[in-house]
Design a protein around this nucleic acid. Structure first.
Lengths: 353, 353
DNA sequence: TCGGGTTTCTGAAAGGTTTCAAGTGGATTG
DNA sequence: CAATCCACTTGAAACCTTTCAGAAACCCGA
């Protein structure tokens, strides 16, 4: 991995031509150039051709700042993701882009990386940029900054989190239900000592999924406290490995026989570490993940996981944002999808019954 | 996955206050407000406090469009990725963000999704936005659009592709060498029928890696044509599965005993499909991937792969862009890193020697 | 009290685009 | 031939901020 370099002379940069230069070159007025740009049907074919030729030869590039300043609107959505390294969110982003594209808008992606400070910084930036709207999977859904935006004119749709403060639309998947389904599955398989792996606890997805899991425990007639809590510092593969280390280190008699992970990244890390430390999956440890990302099925032991409609989530969210930013009598919506369990080898075949 | 909805009344939006209102509210001139914003040290503490209070109470949000229009510069980098769903590129993006952050800049991520048309659209958009610089892993590195940008004042650094047209810096990893190393490894293990899985062929990474593989064949005294070409439509898990289908369908006598995939996504899909069709890895089919993404080690059979310094790649690229966009006597650089082979179960233990 | 040097503040210009009311000129009509 | 229309064009104002030359206020020692 040693870098090797080659130097090269830099090219001088040339300032871009503006409408004014184009107008002069084409021998028309400034307003006409603008018309060619924005209402070509109002310009005669001959003039339009002249202007377009001038634009081409001068290398005209419209200055969006100026356009935006004058026109007020910006034709850009931003999706502020919780973790760009998590394929779940990139699939959501794909859905967002798809919907935006259908409406002729572009999407900028931003990555808060589970860091509230970065999230806040990006929100400031996006507001200053006057983007047409913001989609966000928040680290901190209660941040005052988040509710300020809509009040000041930047519509916000919350993705993958249900919010009902009346400030924004939200599109979510029922995480409590998902957690319940996952844990019920493990209980049905006869597992007694079950761990919930996830964290940090300020992330709503984690607490909801845990809450669902605890509810399943109680429904099965067991105290919620019996669910062993393995708190992680983030929802990443590396943290999953760390959890695996901790878990595998327990004496067999106290070690859980099943683990429900707050997402697939954790589950994959846990799986990898446990296997490499000699535990058999699912015989010694059954594992359930969450999200059903594409890699879950390709894992060392194909992963049982809770599937969410990732792309649809993003698509729906973008459509809501579109409505909010263009329809004057928009009403805030709270859309909730229901996840479903996908059973694979990491739990199946372990049934002690 | 059935959605359920709840409606809610929309809130009226209020226009944001500008410097003018702030100035009036604070009883100072417009220029002073601007000074508070841009050169706070030139304003007396008392005045500054007054202005800041006014900003707060009015909910002032600086209008970046206007700022940019007047000031000319934009404090934003964009990274136009080849595939946001590929963890390799999100790791590169992480490096970019890190370097940008150190310099006080923000990064917008864009996803061309291996689509030349979307790439071109995004380039237009970014140029119009007058971003401070563009980092790009191009679908089409020879696109005229790409060389236009620097000439018109938007610096561009090409990431993960070596370019020496004298128009931009580039930061790359030696893909030919990587391909050669991967294939040499398979040859050393004694494999006779080896497939190269990858495509489409307009993607430079694919052709370089294939070229390296063919070179390794020739170095081993075998005609390059002996390398069986399995062309895919994209570098995705799904395409990898498709390749697996095709490959597993061949009669055992003609089926390759080893496959070198142009990236890990393909390799993971191939692996998954082959295993599910009853082939043993590595006994029936050895697999080498490329990129060594985090999921490679967690795969069904831990994947031998060619590791690239992902984050460093992004970090270095952003630093070059920074230099180009701020240092008047910047010289274009071409930095090349060398990849390394990471051997895991998907090839090891198959040694027929 | 007065020059002279600092520090702080002001006001107007500038930046590139869009918008829109008003203007132009040619074709059509009476 | 004049009046009317129509299809296009024009030019100036507006969007919000930053910049910068110069004005104002202040402080110091003489």
């Amino acid at each position: 991995m040693t870098p090797s370099g080659t130097a090269d002379r830099a090219r001088p940069t040339r300032a871009a031509a503006g409408v004014k230069e184009v107008a002069a070159a084409a021998g028309v007025s400034l307003g006409t150039v603008s018309n060619v740009l924005n209402r070509p049907e109002m310009v005669s074919a001959a003039t339009r051709a002249k202007v377009e030729a001038a634009m081409l030869s001068l290398g005209f590039v419209r200055n969006e700042s100026a356009r935006q300043l004058r026109a007020g609107s910006s034709r850009i959505f931003a999706y502020l993701m919780l973790d760009a390294g998590n394929p779940f969110f990139t699939d959501v982003a794909r859905g967002v882009e798809e919907a935006a594209r259908e409406a002729g808008l572009s999407v900028f992606l931003c990555n808060s990386n589970e860091d509230a400070r970065r999230e806040a910084d990006y929100l400031d930036l996006l507001e200053q940029q006057r983007v047409q709207g913001v989609l966000i999977t928040p680290v901190d859904p209660d941040s005052p900054r988040l509710s300020q935006l809509p009040a000041r004119g930047t519509p916000v749709v919350v993705v993958d989190r249900a919010i009902d403060d009346g400030e924004h639309c939200s599109v979510a998947v029922d995480d409590v239900f998902g957690g319940e389904v996952a844990l019920s599955h493990l209980l049905e398989l006869g597992h007694e000592r079950i761990a919930f792996v996830g964290g940090p606890n300020n992330i709503g997805q984690v607490t909801d999924r845990r809450a669902g899991a605890r509810r399943a425990m109680e429904r099965a007639g067991r105290p919620a406290e019996d669910l062993i809590d393995l708190v992680t510092g983030a929802l990443t593969v590396a943290e999953g490995r760390g959890a695996g280390q901790r878990l595998a280190g327990l004496p067999a008699a106290r070690r859980p026989t099943a683990a429900f992970c707050a997402n697939d990244l954790l589950a994959l890390g846990l799986l990898q570490q446990c296997v490499s430390l000699g535990l058999r999956v699912p015989e010694d440890l059954a594992i359930v993940g969450y999200d059903d990302i594409e890699f879950a099925a390709a894992a060392a032991v194909p992963l049982t996981s809770v599937r969410q409609p990732r792309q649809l989530l993003g698509h729906t969210a973008a459509e809501l944002l579109l409505d909010e930013s263009s329809n004057p009598d928009h009403e805030h919506q709270r859309v909730t999808f229901t996840p479903e369990l996908v059973v694979r080898t990491s739990t199946r075949g372990n049934s002690p019954s």
